[in-house]
Amino acid sequence: MTQAAEALYRQAGAQFAPALARLARSVERDPEKARDLEQEMHCALWISLARFDGRCALKTWVYRVAHNVAADHVSRAVRGPQRVALDVIETLPSAGNVEAETAEALVLAQVGELIRRLPPVDMQVIVLWLEGESAADIADITGLSAGAVATRVHRIKALIAGHFQSEPAYGVTA
């Protein structure tokens, strides 16, 4: 690996390590497998950065690599919940046996469960939106049109807002 690529890897680590950890933990419920997936993302990124030519932002590159590795992981999974498109989900799914003591913890658990049930494209948009990425950046990373991103973001906002309707203390910022 060249020094430039290693410097990029360290820069990416300083900026995006928590986001990639959250992505791994959101698509893989098993903590040990999630850690393996996280390292798989690091490895793919480490190898790919030798090809980084600056034609897109480092952030776009890092997220593309991480989300594509995550999508491959999901497609390799032998077992898992049946995947349902975002537009046919009416409410946030049950968080299973998670003992959530607050509405905040519960909604995080439910959003995690929702992410694991979504097809890859919907999952990618939702996770990037949760990271605070703009619609334009999400479109650049995923390759979707701005309209397709907006539709999905609108849908997830409605689902989360529905969850908080009876809990006004925990708002969702638009």
Partner: peptide
Amino acid sequence: MTTPPLPQWTALARDAVFTDPTEML
């Protein structure tokens, strides 16, 4: 980048770091 819509989400895994390049080799 905009304000994260669910701050609790971005509060998770804040201490995560990348695998060290030596270990990657």
